[in-house]
Design a protein around this nucleic acid. Structure first.
Lengths: 182, 182
DNA sequence: TTTACTGTACCGTCTGGACGGTAATGTCAA
DNA sequence: TTGACATTACCGTCCAGACGGTACAGTAAA
């Protein structure tokens, strides 16, 4: 049950993100997702009984992948001061290097209704709490967090116009801010 | 021609942003916009011959209002070093104080298709060029810009979970960064 | 026998937008 | 001054297509 089922579910989720990118977040249709995932519409609705459930899962998946990636980075430098914000920065760099596509599934969910982002709100608040508990300088950590969030959202909206040089310059400055324990 | 026409157009534009906020960016329908603007659907289509034109106008309006607000702030402190990034910061604070609603019309446009954000890309790039020409420390200015962009996008997505204290702390730190001419 | 689907047919609703009016305002020649 | 026409700024209706979701019969593997 696990192997096949999970694979199908994940294929559908990935297809949904793809479709959202291709036709615009507002035009994510179940038919198109099913086709892209090489699943019948009945099959799709077997896994996700409604469009809302699919969008919910899209958000959930994004959050859990984000969390996993962050934790992975943090394990690599346990105990260091400012380890969380430092991990977030490293994670962002890794994402860039691997040129991971933005989380367009989340966009589709928010387009449908901002309510779908309630889990994101909860996640963000928890992250902020952890960040403040973990940082030697809260304000600086917040700025780094927000600057990264800014770059993420620019990419998500496909309005990122930073040159590679600017990006590098910003990222190294942010790294310096993190290391300068005030 | 001028007085009535402009008023009607603007009522429609404002109604569109409202509707997008209410029903979710993906569900902005011409009928709903017409109703909210107290115009018939035919009337709406007279001003905006297609949905695409309406969304285009929504983005354009946002950009021009942004630009106007920024220029207004900059005029108040002509000649100062780092005047542009400083103006952007002040503008953001003003927006917060007036608790202006986020630009949900732009969200509706991007939901329909990311292509609608092409003017935003151009605008951002120009802004960045101006910013770099105007700043005594490019990297720092970029960080401030990105942090503000981060806060803006969190609000736009309705996932902003910063406490007023955190916001204030960040904003005053950003102001300090701007003033510390390196 | 249960799980995990496929495929087809179908339904009700919503939506963009085409279309054909129409009333008010303005223009201009006789 | 007035009648003829043009333009502007809409209104209200209609329709074809897309979409979410249901229903159901069948199938193949574990």
């Amino acid at each position: 049950m696990a192997a096949e089922k999970v694979t199908s579910r994940q294929r559908i989720l990935a297809a949904a993100a793809q479709v959202a990118r291709d036709v615009g977040p507002a035009h994510l249709s179940l038919d198109a997702v099913a086709q892209r995932a090489a699943v019948s519409k009945g099959g799709l609705l077997y896994h996700f009984p409604s469009k809302a459930k699919l969008l919910e899962a899209l958000v959930e998946q994004h959050l859990s992948e984000f969390d996993a990636a962050l934790n992975r980075k943090e394990e690599q430098q346990q105990g260091c001061p400012n380890s969380l914000i430092s991990s977030y920065l490293k994670m962002f760099v890794t994402e860039l290097e691997q040129s991971q596509p933005p989380a367009s599934g989340v966009l589709a969910a928010m387009a449908e209704s901002p309510e779908f982002l309630a889990p994101v709100r909860r996640f963000n608040r928890k992250l902020l709490d952890r960040l403040e508990a973990n940082s030697s300088n809260e304000a600086k950590a917040l700025i780094v967090y927000l600057a990264l969030e800014g770059m993420r959202s620019l990419r998500l909206f496909e309005v990122d116009v930073l040159t590679p040089e600017e990006r590098e310059s910003v990222l190294s400055s942010l790294a310096a801010m993190v290391e300068a324990t005030a």
